Measured scan of single mutants.
Amino acid sequence: CHSECLGNCSQPDDPTKCVACRNFYLDGRCVETCPPPYYHFQDWRCVNFSFCQDLHHKCKNSRRQGCHQYVIHNNKCIPECPSGYTMNSSNLLCTPCLGPCPKVCHLLEGEKTIDSVTSAQELRGCTVINGSLIINIRGGNNLAAELEANLGLIEEISGYLKIRRSYALVSLSFFRKLRLIRGETLEIGNYSFYALDNQNLRQLWDWSKHNLTITQGKLFFHYNPKLCLSEIHKMEEVSGTKGRQERNDIALKTNGDQASCENELLKFSYIRTSFDKILLRWEPYWPPDFRDLLGFMLFYKEAPYQNVTEFDGQDACGSNSWTVVDIDPPLRSNDPKSQNHPGWLMRGLKPWTQYAIFVKTLVTFSDERRTYGAKSDIIYVQTDATNPSVPLDPISVSNSSSQIILKWKPPSDPNGNITHYLVFWERQAEDSELFELDYCLKGLKLPSRTWSPPFESEDSQKHNQSEYEDSAGECCSCPKTDSQILKELEESSFRKTFEDYLHNVVFVPRKT
C-alpha cells in the first residue's frame, strides 16, 4: 500500500485506493498535508475557505447554543480562536489581540433580562453583547459592586439597553466600559436606550469621564423622579442622539420631579488639616426662599486615587461607600458681607490618608415646582503625618564578641513616609551569675543571650482551647457569634421535631 494509506488498500502504491488515510483526505486521495488554498479540518480532512465560511455563517444565523462559528488559524479551520487571539470578521482569520481579548457573548432569543446578581454573573467577562440587555433589578445585597464585577467589562451592545423598574439602582456607572450601543435591534418605538419607572436612579454616568455613542435609535425617559433633566440632556449631547427624540420621548413632568437638581456650584473657602482632623468651610448658599434650606450634607471617604465619582458603590438597598454628615444651616444675616460661612470639623480620621470630599445642599421643593440647590466639586484632601507606631517583631542576635545583629519589621501604621529608623542602645553591667558559677561542674549549661522565638506554653494553649472559665478566673470563653447562636437554635429545633416524629412513629394507638 501507499505510504499515506492506513489499515489496508485495494490497489498497491495508489493513494486513492486506501481504506483510511494516515494524515489527511483531499478529493478522494490521501495526502501528507493540505496544500494551499485548503485548510486542515478536524485533523483528517482538507477543506477550502468557502466550506469553513459556510459553517461560520450557519452557526451565526441559527443562534443555536453550542454550535461553533468556525475560524481560520495556522492553516486550520477550527471552532474558535485560541487564547490571546480574536477573529477578523472580513476573512475569519485569528489575529493577536492588542491588550485583553474581546469576548463576544451571543444571547438566546436576542435579549437577556438581568433581574438578579445570579443572572448578571452569566455575563461575567463579556466585552461584546450580541443582542439586547434588559435591566430589571428590584433589590439585593452589595448590588453596585456585584454588577460592576460582572457587567463592568461590557464595551458594546449590538441591540438596545433597557432599564425598567430597577428600584435598587442609583447610577449606571457599573457599566464602566460601555462605549457603544449599535441599535441594530430596537425596542418598540425605535428606541435604543429605554429608561422607565426607576424610582431611585439619580445618575446615568459621570459624563466628564465617560463617552457613549448610540449609532441608531432614540432615547426614552419616563417616570424617573430623581433623575434630573440636565442629566438626560447631557446624554443626548454626548451620545449623538440630540435631535432624534420626539416631543413625548422625554417626559418633562415625570423626570426629576422629586430630585434636588443642583444648578449652582458650592466653593470651599477654608481648608485646614491635622493628622486626624480636617476643618472645612464653604461659601454660604440661600435659595430664593431661605426657609427652603434644610441644611447641608457632607460626604467623605478614603480615596487612594483621584478618580472618585459621587455615586460609586451606591445602591438604593443601603450600600453606600460614603460617610454622610448632616449639618444645620448657619444663622442668616441681613448683611451679605457678614454672612457666616458654614463648615464642619471632621474628626477621627487616619493620618497621612487622602480623602475625597464634597458637600451639597438639602432643600425642600418650592411652590413653583422649581428645584434649587448647590453642590461642590469633589475635592481631595490629605491629612498630615504623625509619629508612626512601633516597629514590629524586633530580633537581636550576637554573632561574635563585638557585634549584635538587630532586625525588625516595619510598623503596622507608618502614618507617613518613613525615611529612617533611630536605634538606641545602652551598655549593661555583666551578670554576677557568670562569676559565681563553678565551671568545672559536669552538665553545666552556660547562660545564653542568643534570641529564641517566643512560644506559647501548654497552660496558655489549654486556656485558649477551654470553653469555660478556669477556677483562677484568668480566662473566659469568647462570646458566641450570631451565626453560632442561630445554628444552635436550628439544631435544637431539629432535635425537638425529630423526637416528636419518633414518638408518633414508635407509639401507635392500640386498636379498641
Rank of each mutant, 00 (worst) to 15 (best):
residue 107 L to V: 09
residue 109 E to Q: 14
residue 116 S to L: 04
residue 119 S to C: 13
residue 120 A to R: 02
residue 120 A to Y: 09
residue 121 Q to K: 12
residue 125 G to T: 04
residue 131 G to L: 00
residue 134 I to G: 04
residue 136 N to K: 04
residue 143 L to G: 15
residue 147 L to A: 04
residue 151 L to T: 04
residue 154 I to F: 01
residue 160 Y to L: 04
residue 162 K to E: 05
residue 164 R to C: 04
residue 166 S to I: 07
residue 169 L to M: 07
residue 169 L to F: 14
residue 172 L to M: 14
residue 182 R to H: 10
residue 184 E to D: 15
residue 186 L to A: 07
residue 186 L to F: 11
residue 189 G to Q: 02
residue 191 Y to N: 04
residue 194 Y to S: 09
residue 202 R to S: 13
residue 202 R to P: 01
residue 202 R to K: 13
residue 202 R to F: 08
residue 204 L to V: 05
residue 205 W to A: 02
residue 210 H to M: 05
residue 211 N to S: 12
residue 212 L to K: 01
residue 220 F to Q: 02
residue 221 F to T: 06
residue 222 H to R: 09
residue 223 Y to L: 14
residue 227 L to T: 08
residue 227 L to Q: 02
residue 227 L to H: 01
residue 230 S to T: 07
residue 236 E to T: 13
residue 240 G to W: 15
residue 242 K to N: 11
residue 244 R to T: 08
residue 244 R to V: 06
residue 246 E to M: 09
residue 252 L to A: 10
residue 252 L to S: 14
residue 253 K to D: 03
residue 260 S to W: 03
residue 263 N to P: 13
residue 267 K to C: 09
residue 270 Y to R: 05
residue 274 S to I: 02
residue 276 D to R: 01
residue 279 L to P: 00
residue 282 W to E: 00
residue 283 E to I: 04
residue 289 D to E: 03
residue 289 D to G: 04
residue 289 D to P: 02
residue 292 D to H: 15
residue 293 L to S: 04
residue 300 Y to E: 00
residue 301 K to A: 13
residue 302 E to K: 09
residue 304 P to M: 15
residue 305 Y to E: 04
residue 307 N to T: 06
residue 314 Q to P: 02
residue 317 C to G: 11
residue 319 S to I: 14
residue 328 D to L: 03
residue 328 D to M: 09
residue 331 L to I: 12
residue 342 P to A: 09
residue 343 G to R: 12
residue 343 G to N: 15
residue 353 T to R: 07
residue 360 K to P: 00
residue 364 T to L: 01
residue 368 E to F: 14
residue 369 R to S: 07
residue 371 T to V: 08
residue 382 Q to C: 04
residue 382 Q to D: 04
residue 383 T to G: 00
residue 384 D to C: 05
residue 387 N to L: 04
residue 389 S to C: 04
residue 391 P to R: 02
residue 392 L to D: 05
residue 398 S to M: 02
residue 398 S to Q: 13
residue 402 S to W: 06
